[in-house]
Every structure is written in structure tokens, then in C-alpha cells.
């Protein structure tokens, strides 16, 4: 029996849409010899931050986590976060085609599936962002270090804050807005504290993964290892699809609320954002190349 740990609530769509099919596929293809038991809601330990360590150390066999929370271990994986490297709808397939490039970052765990989130948008409490000028000096929550660089390039003051604190911080004016994906309008109830959403520029895109403890993986015979790997890839595609569906619906629901506005920048309006972000992307890629990560080649492989 493999234990799979996710810190999100038991009602999260992954439970039925990702993990159940994953468990079924593993069970069917191993003739019932390997079963998967899913622990949702942080039953095996709360919060996203320690998830990577839970996989490395073996609190659970398989863990859902965000590479961004342990960014120092995944500089190459996280390149897809930068504006312009992938697009949200095709990113997961492209990344899967180039997984071998990432093998150096997965020495402590086995990567089963890697997928990207819906694009990050600007969720603003009460100040609309229609141009880069509007963003000047505003305090915006950043999802990551690279996200912070992009925000700085856009003229904002990045604030780092756990995702769970965004609601209160936006409600009370501790921050003016947050750079985060649309699903959080629903899952973290951010729609209640957000008046304006801005999209249309090249977004930052966060990623998620399913990782497995090395020893748990080695304990399986080769044939079963292959089954789990294969099921992980399917899970990544399912999860990516769910993520985009939930985001689309959450954004549509938000736009339908009275007094709320979704601002979609025109190509002209987006151009300054994209120009500023492109410099950051290039800088990060150059730095990664210097650190010996062969970043340029990887990013090139991801381009359509």
C-alpha cells in the first residue's frame, strides 16, 4: 500500500479527478498488488512548505507539493515560472517531453508528474491596474523569488506572504493585491476581497508535482515502477486540465459578480509589462546558464 499525502482539503477536485484515477490505474495495471491510499487535508502533516521533506524523508510514499516552496532545490524546474517560457495550456505536455533534462534536480526523490497551474493574474483589492503606471509602488504579494523580480520590474513592491494569509492581508490593506492564479478566487475565497483582476500580459506560471520517496520506489519491482511512473504522467495531465478548468470557471464567476471587473490588457497595454518581464526572464536564464544548468537549451526545448 502506497500512502499519498496532499495538504489540500478533502473536497479539492484533485481527490476525485486526479488521485482516484491514479489509484485505479496503479491497482489495475499491477493486478491489485499495489494499492494507493490517499490522505487529504494535511492528515499526514499540514501545509505545503514541508511537503518536499515529507517525500524525501518518507513520511508518505507519494506527496503532492509545489517546487516553488523549496526553490533552492529546483532552479531548473522553476524556469517555467518565468513569463514567456511556457503557455499555461500546452506547458505540461511540453515539460513532460523534456523531463529527462531535469533529472539532476530529482536525485532525492522520484518525479512522478509535473504540471503547471493556470496563469498568475493580478488580483487587486480596490486599485485597478490598467497600465504599468497604475502598479507603481503598490504592495503586491509575490508567489516566489522570481515572481518578486517580475513585480519589481513592473514597478510594484513585492511582499512575500503565505497563500493562506492573502485574504486577511488584502481585506485589511496590508497589501494592495496579489499575483496568484484564478483558482484562488474560489479556493481561498479571494473573490470576496478582490475588486479588480488584471490579465493579458505574459504571466508567471507556478508548477506542482507528485513526487515519490526514493526507497519506496526502489522497493517496487521494475514492472510496477513503470506502472507508477506512467500513472504519474496521466495524473499530471489530469491535474493540469482540472487546474485550468477551475481557474476559468472561477474567473467567469468573478466577472459575473456585481461591482467586479476583469481587466484584459490590449496588446499595446501589455507591451510594457512584457518588455520589462522579458529582461527578468533573460537575466534569470543567463544566471542559470552560468551556474551550469543549461537553462537556455531547456527553455528552447519548451518553446513551440
Amino acid at each position: 500500500e502506497l500512502k499519498l499525502a496532499d495538504f489540500q482539503p478533502a473536497t479539492h477536485p484533485y481527490a476525485a479527478g486526479v488521485y482516484a484515477p491514479f489509484a485505479d490505474e496503479v491497482k489495475a495495471k499491477t493486478d491489485g498488488e499495489v494499492t494507493v491510499r490517499v490522505f487529504m487535508g494535511g492528515e499526514l502533516g499540514t501545509g505545503p512548505v514541508e511537503q518536499f521533506n515529507r517525500a524525501v524523508n518518507g513520511v508518505a510514499d507519494i506527496v503532492f507539493a509545489l517546487p516553488g516552496y523549496t526553490a533552492s532545490s529546483f532552479p531548473k524546474t522553476l524556469l517555467t515560472e518565468l513569463p514567456g517560457v511556457i503557455s499555461a495550456d500546452t506547458g505540461t505536455e511540453r515539460v513532460q517531453a523534456s523531463l529527462a533534462d531535469l533529472s539532476k534536480e530529482y536525485r532525492r526523490v522520484v518525479l512522478l508528474g509535473l504540471w503547471n497551474n493556470a496563469p498568475n493574474l493580478l488580483l487587486m483589492a480596490d486599485k485597478p491596474v490598467r497600465s504599468m503606471q497604475d502598479l507603481k509602488g503598490l504592495k503586491i504579494r509575490t508567489p516566489s523569488r522570481n515572481g518578486g523580480r517580475v513585480l519589481e520590474a513592473w514597478g510594484a513592491a513585492p511582499v512575500s506572504l503565505p497563500a493562506t494569509d492573502i485574504y486577511n492581508a488584502m481585506q485589511t490593506g496590508v497589501i494592495d493585491g496579489a499575483m496568484i492564479d484564478a483558482t484562488t478566487l474560489q479556493t481561498f475565497k479571494l473573490a470576496e476581497v478582490t475588486k479588480y483582476v488584471t490579465q493579458g500580459m505574459q504571466p508567471t506560471i507556478s508548477s506542482f508535482f507528485l513526487i515519490m520517496n526514493r526507497d519506496s520506489f526502489k522497493d517496487l519491482p521494475d514492472s510496477q515502477q513503470a506502472v507508477v511512473q506512467e500513472a504519474g504522467k496521466t495524473a499530471a495531465l489530469n491535474a493540469n486540465r482540472i487546474q485550468l478548468e477551475v481557474a476559468d470557471k472561477a474567473l467567469a464567476d468573478f466577472a459575473a459578480l456585481p461591482g467586479k471587473e476583469v481587466i484584459t490588457l490590449s496588446a499595446d497595454e501589455a507591451a510594457p509589462f512584457d518588455a520589462a518581464a522579458a529582461k527578468v526572464t533573460q537575466q534569470v536564464i543567463d544566471d542559470a546558464d552560468k551556474a551550469g544548468l543549461e537553462a537556455s537549451a531547456y527553455v528552447k526545448a519548451l518553446q513551440p
Binding site: 502533516g45 499540514t46 501545509g47 512548505v49 514541508e50 521533506n53 515529507r54 518518507g58 513520511v59 503565505p162
Partner: peptide, 22 residues
């Protein structure tokens, strides 16, 4: 229930995550 590895892992990850909780 789950063996030594799981218990040790729980011990170290939960200690660190509790005492580094913002």
C-alpha cells in the same frame, strides 16, 4: 504501524515545521 523510516521522518519534519511556523 509504518516502520522506523516513517516514524523518524515524521519526527524530524514535524519538529522543524512546527518550530519554523511563521
Amino acid at each position: 504501524l509504518n516502520g522506523e523510516r516513517s516514524a523518524m521522518a515524521l519526527l524530524v519534519t514535524e519538529t522543524y515545521s512546527s518550530i519554523s511556523n511563521y
